[in-house]
């Protein structure tokens, strides 16, 4: 087998079809590890015409809160986020838990907020993950919103819907444990009612992410009022 292959190579070399030395591959100096190419799936989202590099503040807050809503819906949500990153072949951007934590830390409302900004590729990766996971949770999201509709039409407390009450409580707990209570943006949500409203808003947005064009719509909406 090996002999045959060597024979083939010799034949090609003789014909001059493959000339490794000529291509400079033989004595090529490698100074740095090869730069991993950005996953192709990111090209489905166009680059917005932003005045400065990095994602605007609202986009960073939005992405983090949507991920938090997914975690509130799904108990194993944080694990699912990492698995989805693997499934969508986004490891070059999100290699692990720490990178994900750093990316979500760009939300300025966080307790351990990162000073760096979120790059567009990172934001695209998070957008795709949110849409993928929300699509998996479509049935639950629709049930919760339908229940919310019925309860609010009858002016009943939201806790009457067991599953909805569970979601709201988990969302409030996650929000309070992760957000810096001294920030003005967080002080605005200092009551259960305001946090419930935020949780329902995020649930509604997750519903719109579940659609056929969900990623494109979510991606576009992140830059509303920011592009020039």
């Amino acid at each position: 087998m090996g002999k045959t292959r060597a024979g083939f190579r010799q034949k090609f070399l003789n014909r001059g079809l493959i000339n490794f030395a000529g291509l400079g591959l033989v004595d090529m100096q490698v100074d740095s590890p090869p730069v991993p190419a950005a996953p192709l799936i990111l090209d489905t989202l166009p680059n917005p015409n932003l005045p400065n590099a990095g994602c605007p503040r609202r986009a960073r807050v939005e992405l983090d809160l949507l991920l938090m809503a997914i975690e509130a819906l799904d108990v194993s949500g944080s694990e699912a986020i990492l698995q989805t990153a693997q499934h969508l072949e986004l490891q070059p951007i999100i290699p692990g838990r720490v990178k994900l934590w750093l990316m979500r830390g760009t939300n300025p409302m966080r307790r351990y907020s990162q000073r760096r900004s979120l790059s567009l590729d990172e934001a695209k990766a998070l957008t795709l993950i949110i849409c993928f996971l929300s699509k998996r949770l479509t049935v639950l999201i629709r049930q919760l919103l339908f229940g919310y509709q019925q309860l609010s039409d009858k002016s009943l407390a939201l806790e009457h819907h067991f599953r909805l009450g569970d979601y709201l409580e988990r969302f409030r707990t996650l929000f309070r444990s992760r957000m810096n209570p001294k920030r003005a943006g967080v002080i605005a949500y200092n009551t259960d009612e305001k946090l419930n409203d935020l949780a329902i808003t995020m649930l509604t947005r997750l519903l719109f992410c579940t659609g056929t064009q969900g990623p494109q719509r979510l991606w576009c909406s992140l830059f509303d009022g920011e592009v020039v």
Binding site: T201, T204, R205, F208, R217, C220, S221, L222, D224, G225
Partner: peptide, 11 residues
């Protein structure tokens, strides 16, 4: 309208 729901920014 869907975009304004997603972003919360009225057009």
């Amino acid at each position: 309208y869907a975009q304004s729901i997603l972003s919360g920014v009225p057009n």
